[in-house]
Each structure stands twice: as C-alpha cells, then as structure tokens.
C-alpha cells in the first residue's frame, strides 16, 4: 500500500541515501530503488523527481554525467559529491532525531 504525499520533504534525503550505496544511477533506477526498498510503500512522483535531482545538482550535492548504454542510448546518471555525502550525514541524523522525538511524543502524550 502506497502512502500518498509521504515523501514530502524527505525525497532529497532518500535520493542521497540511495546514491551513497549504489551510485551511479539514472533517474528511473533511483525511483524504482526507493519504491522497492520501501516495500512499495513510498511512491515517487515522477514529475517531482527530476526537478529535485536538478536542484540538488545545482546546489552541488550530486553530480550528473552522461553515459552510453550498450544499446547506444544515452543515459544521465547521478553520483554523490563530497558535499552531498556531508549533507547526507547531517540530514540523516536530523531525520533520526526528529523521528525519535515524534515517536516519543506519540508514545508519551
């Protein structure tokens, strides 16, 4: 079951995480990875993936390069930069902190 709008605000974090493990990946593969790893619970809006990728590329978190597939088609694949790696660590701990805090509130309230 997919959760609508569940990715609000956390798409960047997920992209960074995925790329930290299995870069370089192209847009479609990033999308499917997120869906598979979340057990099909998280769905990536295809329309919002690319602007997000391009925004992250502009701010220097990821780096896009063109590669050619065996069948001759060109693919744009993305890779993590050093800054992206730092950002990932920061965002990850922030996310964990927030999640723990929210958990705590839910539990104690």
């Amino acid at each position: 079951m997919a959760i609508a709008d569940a990715l609000q605000g956390s798409l960047d974090l997920l992209v960074l995480k995925i790329l930290s493990r299995r870069a370089p990946l192209h847009g479609y593969a990033i999308m499917t990875s997120i869906e598979t790893l979340s057990g099909e619970r998280l769905r990536v809006e295809e329309g919002s993936l690319y602007p997000a990728l391009h925004r992250m590329e502009e701010s220097g978190l990821i780096r896009g390069t063109w590669t050619t597939k065996d069948n001759g088609r060109r693919l744009r694949v993305y890779d993590l930069t050093a800054r992206g790696r730092k950002e990932l660590a920061k965002e990850e701990s922030r996310w964990t902190a927030v999640a723990t805090a929210v958990q705590r509130v839910l539990r104690l309230a």
Binding site: H26, G27, Y28, E46, Y50, R73, R74, L75, R76
Partner: peptide
C-alpha cells in the same frame, strides 16, 4: 539535454 533525459526515463 533535459528532453533526452526524460525520454530515457520513459524508455527505461
């Protein structure tokens, strides 16, 4: 480039 990237997404 943008067109090419998106086309490749659909083809993929």
């Amino acid at each position: 480039e943008l067109d090419e990237e998106m086309a490749s997404h659909i083809e993929e």
